[in-house]
Write a protein that binds this DNA or RNA. Structure first.
Ligand code: SF4
Ligand code: SF4
Lengths: 147, 147
DNA sequence: GACAATAAAGATGATTTTAGTCCTATTTAT
DNA sequence: ATAAATAGGACTAAAATCATCTTTATTGTC
């Protein structure tokens, strides 16, 4: 259906939240869930995926919680999404050569290849650090407007 | 999940097939189904959508079948897909302003907007006439290789 | 008018995905 | 020990996906 699932959406929100926190701070799942408006028990699953994918580090027990496993500059939007949704393929023939047996004579195949390239270019080009900085700028603007 | 459904895939195949036929020729559903490797009864539904969307014209009864309703030069890949899948939105916030109430302060929103713009640029930029011509060139190449 | 060929329309259904919830186990600081 | 946290797995309702089948309507030919 060519659209993002809630998994992907929530993953981006969660990683972005962690990226916006001060270096070294540990965030609770309930804190992320509330600010990012994600159901807490659902978010729990998302966070597990992010940990396994190596984007986020977790600590259990008292004073536990989540923090980024790597610098926000090194995490792209694509990585956050693919951590929970798996690799992005706009059409099955992009999975690998031969996945659709028509691919060697199909004129549509190259179009999907190009479309996917352009889409990923955008998602690869946006780091969580950049998003966090954009977010700060935006929240200043919004506050000004509310005056 | 960010990938095309069989509906969209089959719609493109069907319209492309019609675009590759000689001007004015009427094609049977069984003929399209066989050459394009689409289940016949499924294709029947797809064709109905294409007719209602105004891309294809149908005729019932003996000597009936399908043909393009407009020149192949004026039908884009996007139109074929959207005729059966509905409008493409990579994320819900692209449906319309306010669909996600976070959109006015969300730094991720503009990224999806840009990603979608680039994706649609590709799909809008490919007409069925162009695909048909690419297809002809490809089939010549494939035949040469088989020698 | 009967008949055969063809698409239109709608009912049905199996399977998978989506979008969650809930409960128990495990880890950890005090 | 205990309380506070995440980890992990079982479960579920609703929707989407990918079809199939049957009946109806239309149309050309004899
Ligand atoms: S676009 Fe062509 S190659 Fe890709 S899935 Fe469709 S038929 Fe196969
Ligand atoms: S990207 Fe931002 S605006 Fe779009 S759906 Fe997610 S939160 Fe809402």
């Amino acid at each position: 259906m060519l659209n993002l699932t809630r998994d992907g959406e929530y993953a981006v929100r969660a990683v972005l939240y962690l990226s916006s926190q001060p270096e070294g701070k540990i965030s609770l799942i309930s804190e992320i869930a509330e600010t990012q408006e994600v159901p807490k028990s659902y978010l729990s699953k998302i966070m597990q995926h992010l940990v396994r994918a190596g984007l986020v580090r977790s600590r259990r027990g008292i004073n536990g919680g989540f923090m980024l496993a790597r610098p926000a500059e090194s995490i792209t939007m694509r990585q956050a999404i693919e951590a929970v949704e798996g690799p992005i393929f706009l059409n099955i023939c992009l999975v690998k050569k031969g996945e659709c047996h028509r691919d060697d004579f199909c004129p549509v195949h190259p179009v999907w290849k190009e479309a996917q390239r352009r889409l990923l270019e955008v998602l690869d080009g946006k780091t969580m650090a950049a998003l966090a900085s954009d977010g700060e700028a935006l929240s200043k603007k919004v506050k000004k407007k509310q005056k």
